[in-house]
Amino acid sequence: MPDMKDSLRRTLWISQVTFLEAVRQRFFAFLLVLGAAMVLSSVSLRVFDFGHGELKFIADFGFGGMFFFGSVLAVVMTAQLFFSEIDNKTALTLLAKPLSRPEFLLGKFFGAWAVLGVFVLVLAGLQGVVLWAREQELILVAEQAGKIPPTFSIVGLGQLVLLQWLRLGVVIAIVLAISALARTFLFTVVVGSLAVVAGQLQWIAQDAFLRPTDSPIYAAFLWISTRLIPNLQQFNLADALVLGSSVVEEGALISVGLSGLTYLVAYLTLGALIFRRREI
């Protein structure tokens, strides 16, 4: 197995340098600050209904920032990390070394995924602190008024971090598959963004698919689009997991996780197959 070990090591080195490149760029810091500002500014939101609506407001606002800026980062940064190697011809130098193309692409994937891991962790950590601080205040208020205080779940926050990270991993894998095929950064960003939007709206096609239809072509179109495009909306369980607004069964979490992993692996494999044939 020394080959496998060498291969993993090379992948790791590529991802380390990719990570370094990403965090030494201003773009990452910029989006991290924007996301953090959004989380922190949610503190100023006040709704006087003894807290239940208020925690939800804070969570919606903060997770919204994490979700939106995370998506932007996953699309733009991944495409940028890939095309900076192609356009600057550093890929020529690297791929002339005993490094296989799948190793290169996987290295890019893990590097970008690690960056987004940091992004999600930092924002979720901040969000947790903000929610906790507000929760403490609200508990006092609610006690004085003789009402049940609102709470939020730390475990749920942890699960949400994992789900969001997985969702961003799927986005990165899709963007890398597009990059492997595309000629330009701009094309990749546009198509990648469309793919994310399609993924967010995929449940509409899924709903439509469940309804009976007369047209087999329409049915086939729906079938293909529900298989090809991952349902990215299914990862957004913030309310349910963190605020306990509804019960999430463990089985449901696992099935969302598995579906995410399946798409992630499928798109990475597709990307590696396309990239293998690309002329550098």
Binding site: V17, L20, E21, Q25, K89, T90, L92, T93, A96, K97
Partner: peptide, 12 residues
């Protein structure tokens, strides 16, 4: 291999 007009990762 040294490619023509070489350009390397400028942040390293």
């Amino acid at each position: 291999f040294l490619p023509e007009a070489p350009y390397f990762h400028k942040f390293l």
